[in-house]
Amino acid sequence: MAAKDLYIAALEKKLAELSGIEVDQIKKNQLANASSEARSIREMAEYVDSIQVKQAGQAVAGQVNPQVAAMFVHIKAELGEERGAHSLPPLQYDYDALEPHISATIMQIHHTKHHQGYINNLKAASEKLVEAEKANDIAAMNSLLPAIKFNGGGHLNHTIFWTNMAPKAGGEPTGAIAEAIKKDFGSFQSFKEKFSGSSVGVKGSGWGWLGYCPKDDKVAIATCQNQDPLQITHGLIPLLGLDVWEHAYYLQYKNLRADYVKAFFNVINWANVNQRYEAARKAAGH
């Protein structure tokens, strides 16, 4: 056995001693968790494909759920994309730029595979929505809502997430968002503890958020399941989002979500969060 192989074998043995889990099992767990979101994306694609649009004149009258249109409105506000014309937004940094806090492997898979998967499904759902509208099939339109919400939310949430991070970032915020956090949470440390606790505590897959409430002119913490968009779910304008689906951290942090959340604070792009906050306040007339 070559010296390199002996060295790797020794490292794997030590890892097994420290973790109590054989390396082969760790690798299997990594693959299983990395594929969990891919499976969800695939199942949603199959769901969209299964929806049958009735022929024109056969549809039953009714009302289209307003969340269908709202989802596309929020996407256009963030990305400037018209309904159905969706594409993967480029990152403003290299895949390895957030290391050691978030690995290049995670970033590349997350961006080019998972995010792209949501976009592919959203475009397919949009095409079927056009077909349903032409046939005036209200039932089919409403049946598409779960796919539009899941995939549209996945596209929107991830787009915000990428901009919320930056190399050589982190630390404490400055400017208007810093004042808002101090006013509504008492201190940055208090906010950090509450945001971290909420994000770690998300049951299953979902997101932790800092959002802005236009009505109360306050910032607030909220969580969403799966890819549910913050604004539709809680009425808050998204400022800072943290993806706590296992695919976002498992390859690097295993099942230690709390360590991943802690590391996230080293890459937060507070300039972007502040820009979002000031724009939201201005739009709300404050």
Score class of each variant (00 low, 15 high):
D5G: 04
N266I: 05
L6V: 11
G206I: 03
C224I: 05
W209F: 09
W209G: 01
W245E: 10
Q92G: 12
F72R: 00
N142R: 00
N157G: 08
N255Q: 14
N121I: 00
A280D: 03
Q63C: 12
H111A: 10
V53M: 02
S199P: 10
Y7S: 15
R281K: 15
A10G: 15
V130N: 12
G171A: 06
L256I: 09
P173G: 02
D49C: 01
H234T: 06
H234M: 01
I232E: 03
Q275I: 02
K262Y: 08
N121E: 02
I119K: 05
I119F: 02
P146W: 02
A59K: 01
G57T: 11
N33H: 10
S196E: 10
M44P: 06
N255G: 11
K113E: 09
F265G: 04
G204A: 00
P90V: 00
E46A: 13
G186R: 01
G84H: 03
L239M: 08
E78R: 13
L31S: 11
G170K: 01
Q227R: 15
F265N: 03
Y93F: 10
A45E: 14
G117V: 02
A279H: 03
V200F: 09
I268M: 03
G197D: 07
A16G: 09
N164V: 07
A263W: 09
G170H: 06
F161C: 07
Y277A: 02
C213R: 14
M141K: 08
Q30V: 13
A169E: 05
V273C: 05
N226G: 10
L236V: 04
G204W: 03
